[in-house]
Computed example of a mutant assay.
Amino acid sequence: MTLTLTSTAFDAGGPIPPIYTCEGNDISPPLAWSGAPAETKSYALIVDDPDAPDPAAPQRTWVHWVVYNLGPEVSALEQAGRHSPSGSLDGLNDWKRAGYGGPCPPIGRHRYFFKLYALDTMLPDLKQPTKQQLEKAMEKHVLAKAELIGTYHKA
């Protein structure tokens, strides 16, 4: 089986509804996954935008959400608001805060990558790591990865 990540809020490659953005309620969309390896001990999720600030001339990847130590029994995140499920740990997004920060592109249609990692361990408390710090901690522990891409353009 292959690890897959889906959302009932938007199709792969499709537009993310405004409710999940800075123009709406800025809450995280529902996500679900399946097909994790049997050895999975935890999951990590990173949501980022490689098109910042302008898709025609991207200069950086903007991080919207970093969450890890989602338990192996977890196979979905409900439309959740800004903070992560009980038992999981938040990292810092590029607004320098924990939790979800929705799409809010200054110009153009951006792509948002929802990346789920199945890990062979629970990670130690990294004290609100950045995306880069979490990726470093996950090295040698990733069993599988799934990706879901959505897009958004401000009205």
Rank of each mutant, 00 (worst) to 15 (best):
residue 110 H to T: 12
residue 140 K to W: 05
residue 118 A to M: 01
residue 44 A to S: 14
residue 134 L to A: 02
residue 26 D to Q: 05
residue 113 F to C: 00
residue 131 K to W: 01
residue 4 T to W: 00
residue 113 F to T: 03
residue 53 P to L: 04
residue 109 R to E: 08
residue 88 S to L: 14
residue 12 A to C: 02
residue 154 K to N: 12
residue 9 A to L: 11
residue 126 L to M: 07
residue 132 Q to S: 15
residue 103 P to G: 08
residue 130 T to I: 09
residue 13 G to K: 11
residue 95 W to L: 13
residue 125 D to V: 02
residue 30 P to A: 07
residue 105 P to G: 09
residue 67 V to D: 13
residue 14 G to E: 03
residue 120 D to W: 07
residue 71 G to M: 05
residue 91 G to I: 01
residue 87 G to F: 14
residue 116 L to K: 04
residue 85 P to N: 03
residue 25 N to L: 13
residue 68 Y to L: 05
residue 155 A to G: 14
residue 116 L to G: 05
residue 92 L to Y: 15
residue 11 D to E: 11
residue 103 P to L: 09
residue 35 G to P: 00
residue 65 W to V: 08
residue 67 V to I: 15
residue 128 Q to L: 12
residue 14 G to W: 10
residue 134 L to S: 10
residue 142 V to G: 07
residue 16 I to V: 10
residue 3 L to Y: 02
residue 147 E to A: 08
residue 15 P to D: 07
residue 64 H to S: 12
residue 145 K to L: 09
residue 83 H to G: 11
residue 22 C to L: 06
residue 30 P to G: 03
residue 107 I to G: 02
residue 87 G to S: 12
residue 45 L to M: 14
residue 96 K to H: 15
residue 7 S to Q: 14
residue 120 D to V: 00
residue 42 S to P: 06
residue 125 D to M: 00
residue 100 Y to F: 15
residue 42 S to N: 01
residue 23 E to K: 01
residue 80 A to R: 15
residue 138 M to R: 03
residue 82 R to G: 09
residue 116 L to W: 11
residue 60 R to V: 09
residue 55 P to Y: 06
residue 76 A to L: 09
residue 21 T to R: 00
residue 146 A to K: 06
residue 23 E to H: 01
residue 66 V to S: 11
residue 54 D to T: 05
residue 77 L to G: 08
residue 17 P to G: 06
residue 107 I to T: 15
residue 129 P to F: 03
residue 122 M to D: 10
residue 34 S to T: 14
residue 32 A to Q: 04
residue 5 L to M: 01
residue 93 N to F: 09
residue 50 P to Y: 03
residue 62 W to H: 14
residue 75 S to H: 12
residue 9 A to H: 14
residue 85 P to A: 14
residue 133 Q to H: 07
residue 64 H to R: 11
residue 11 D to K: 04
residue 104 C to W: 11
residue 2 T to A: 08
residue 48 D to P: 04
residue 105 P to N: 11
residue 147 E to K: 12
residue 34 S to W: 00
residue 30 P to N: 07
residue 142 V to P: 08
residue 23 E to C: 04
residue 8 T to R: 10
residue 110 H to K: 13
residue 2 T to I: 03
residue 126 L to P: 13
residue 2 T to H: 06
residue 154 K to Y: 11
residue 29 P to R: 00
residue 53 P to I: 02
residue 90 D to K: 10
residue 93 N to L: 09
residue 4 T to R: 06
residue 66 V to N: 09
residue 145 K to Y: 04
residue 100 Y to C: 13
residue 51 D to E: 13
residue 57 A to P: 00
residue 54 D to E: 12
residue 6 T to S: 03
residue 46 I to R: 03
